[in-house]
């Protein structure tokens, strides 16, 4: 019967879509591990402590990239957490104010924004005036990328706490600052920390905002006002090189990056679960 056939085709379509949706995910995850883990095994500890070797020379590692990523992530957290948290607190504590309503919309817009534009913006306001790329500029770009995540989750965390806890605070004669930071956010710390983790996962993998801010280097002096490498940046440039050992190192770096992401992602996930 025609009607049955259509129904069967529909079920087939749903199953086929699921397959097409899931398959690339596993192929990508698998290929990163498949190509990357042998590289880590071959290069050993030097992969994490060494620097980029000359083309077609064995050995070497991605230490400057790891160092750059870590410093920029830490810096951006130091800037982004207070900025995002206080902005989120404002929006949650004064939800009916027109400033909050507008801010909520702007945050969603920034969240969806092409991150390469954030990079260009920071380049224009920091790199050009300073005369060079720097870890600080990279971190600043990452801060902007992180800001909407931290602010939105802070807002959600505060709003998830029932009103009466706040009233208890007022009854005890605490001021609003105390109530938010020692009662509300403590109660909702899971949502709050999840937000921080998601923001962190996001910035730890970003490439586009760093290209014209951190600038990338293969050997860094470690100074914050000088150009810096980053794991995603290294992968981006190494892939474009014609040397096979550079491709190897790119895959190795990809596995490191994926591992960092998965650790953060899974902790966020467990946070929500428990």
């Amino acid at each position: 019967m025609y009607r049955r056939l259509k129904d069967d085709l529909f079920v087939l379509f749903a199953f086929a879509s699921a397959l097409l949706a899931i398959l690339p995910i596993f192929h990508i995850l698998f290929s990163v591990f498949y190509n990357g883990i042998p590289v880590l095994a071959k290069y050993g500890v030097e992969f994490l402590s060494g620097t980029l070797p000359p083309p077609n020379k064995a050995g070497g590692g991605v230490f400057p990239a790891i160092y750059g990523s870590l410093t920029m992530i830490v810096l951006s957290l130091m800037l982004g957490i207070p900025l995002g948290v206080f902005a989120g607190v404002f929006i949650a504590e004064y939800p009916s104010s027109s400033i909050s309503k507008a801010a909520r919309t702007v945050l969603v817009i920034i969240l969806e924004f092409p991150t390469i534009l954030v990079g260009l913006f920071v380049m224009a306001v920091m790199v050009i005036p300073m005369g060079r790329f720097s870890a600080i500029a990279g971190a600043f770009a990452l801060t902007i990328v992180m800001l909407p995540y931290v602010a939105t989750y802070t807002e959600q965390a505060i709003r998830s706490v029932p009103q009466h806890y706040k009233e208890v605070g007022f009854a005890l004669g605490l001021n609003r600052f105390r109530i938010v930071f020692s009662i509300t956010l403590r109660i909702a710390k899971k949502v709050f920390i999840t937000g921080l983790l998601i923001g962190m996962a996001k910035v730890s993998g970003e490439t586009a905002p760093l290209i014209f801010t951190a600038g990338n280097v293969w050997r860094s002096t470690g100074a914050l006002n000088e150009p810096a490498g980053a794991i995603p940046l290294w992968i981006y440039y190494l892939v474009q090189q014609p040397y096979s050992n550079y491709h190897e190192i790119a895959w190795g770096a990809a596995v490191v990056l994926l591992a960092i992401f998965l650790v953060i992602f899974l902790s966020a996930r467990l946070m929500v679960r428990s």
Partner: peptide
């Protein structure tokens, strides 16, 4: 969900 948050450069290298 993993896919949605994964660093985009990993899609690039793949």
């Amino acid at each position: 969900d993993i896919m949605a948050g994964m660093p985009t450069i990993l899609f690039g290298i793949w």
